[in-house]
Amino acid sequence: MRQYVVDAFTDSVFHGNQAAVCVLDQWPDDELMMNITRENNFSETAFTVREGDKWHLRWFTPGGEIDLCGHATLGTAYVLFRFYEKDADRLVFTTLSGDLIVTKEGDLLEMEFPAYDLVPVKVTDEMEQVIGSRPLEAFMGRDLLCVMESEKTVRELAPDLEKVKQLDGLLLHVTAAGMDTDCVSRSFAPKLGVAEDPVCGSGHCHIIPYWANVLGKDKLVAYQASKRGGTLYCRREGNKIFMAGKAALYSVDELFFTGS
């Protein structure tokens, strides 16, 4: 099985978010895909199979399959454009979140994702204790989004990851206005076996709608302030989020195993 490791939302390796991408002729069983994912131990491993003029794409975390992942979609598109669809400028992925489209936009790859509807929720003492600082506001989509006082606060947070599992929402995102970008954020996913997601594309389907409304503009530059860091060039159109970034190839591997 051919596997590629790509750093997404960066133009150089050792930054951005790592994704393993397995390009397949047919689907293996789910147990094997989970074993490969756990062996990689990245936040996501993507598996894709060509089906007609589309590619069927599935994402797995060490904790199980997930319904939406931005950085592994970007990584998969990068691999397909570079090695399998060299003359294409547009790819369509069939996923658990419907058809996702990735297009070449100059030196960027732009993904079209659904925006999550954000429902305001009460800021609680539990949130403050778990996160280590009291949010100014909180919202629920698929994930919990907490708005913090400043970029400095976001960068310095050290949440209690075991207690993060007790909060509502699949992931926890913390965000604030940026000093050099429109917004900064960090994303934590201990429920999925991932302590901190270095750059979370699906998280920005929560983050960008919030900041687009607050800042009154639909084009934003976002920075994920993890140790690896990553930049996302985003725009909102109706209920869609267009998210663009670069990617860098780290390795091309052959996987060897016997059975599942």
Rank of each mutant, 00 (worst) to 15 (best):
Q18L: 13
D197W: 14
E105Y: 03
D107T: 09
G201W: 02
Y84D: 04
M111H: 11
L220V: 09
K122A: 13
D143F: 05
L255K: 05
N35S: 12
A177G: 13
D30F: 11
V130W: 11
L109M: 04
E65W: 01
E105K: 14
N40G: 07
T10F: 12
P198W: 09
M179F: 15
T258P: 00
G238P: 09
E65P: 00
G259V: 06
D143S: 08
L161G: 05
E39D: 13
F256Q: 14
A20K: 03
L109R: 11
E156Q: 15
T61L: 03
P120V: 10
V102T: 07
L144Y: 01
A77Q: 01
M140C: 02
A20T: 01
K246E: 13
M179V: 15
A248R: 03
K104M: 04
H56T: 12
N40L: 00
A158L: 14
E112D: 14
R82L: 04
G216M: 12
F42K: 03
G132T: 06
S226L: 11
A248C: 03
S260A: 08
Y116R: 10
C146T: 09
F113G: 00
V49S: 03
S187I: 14
D197R: 15
F9V: 10
G64I: 07
G169Q: 01
E137Q: 05
D160W: 02
K191S: 02
A46K: 07
K246H: 14
L68M: 13
L74A: 09
M140R: 11
M148K: 00
V102K: 11
Q166S: 15
T10R: 01
L161N: 06
A158R: 15
L57V: 02
K246V: 00
W59C: 11
I101C: 15
V130H: 08
Q224G: 09
G169K: 01
V21K: 02
T48D: 06
D218Y: 13
T175K: 01
T45M: 00
R50A: 06
I101R: 14
K86M: 05
C200S: 13
C22N: 13
E196R: 12
R155Q: 12
M243F: 10
Y233K: 04
Y4A: 02
Q18Y: 02
L108D: 08
V6H: 07
L192N: 10
P159Q: 10
P198G: 13
T37Q: 06
G203A: 15
D107Y: 06
T181Q: 07
C69M: 08
Y233C: 08
E162T: 07
C146P: 03
D160I: 08
Y233H: 02
M127H: 03
L232Y: 12
V23E: 01
A8K: 08
Y210R: 09
P209C: 06
G230L: 10
D117I: 15
C183S: 14
T231G: 11
D253V: 11
G52H: 00
D25I: 07
T73F: 05
V194H: 03
L171A: 14
L215W: 05
S226H: 13
V252S: 13
L161E: 10
L24Q: 03
Q26P: 03
N41Y: 11
E126S: 12
V102M: 05
P120K: 12
D99W: 08
G63V: 06
S43P: 07
D143Y: 02
V92C: 01
R228Q: 10
D160C: 02
D125I: 01
I208R: 10
G230T: 13
V49T: 02
K163C: 06
D99F: 09
T73A: 08
A247Y: 04
W55Q: 07
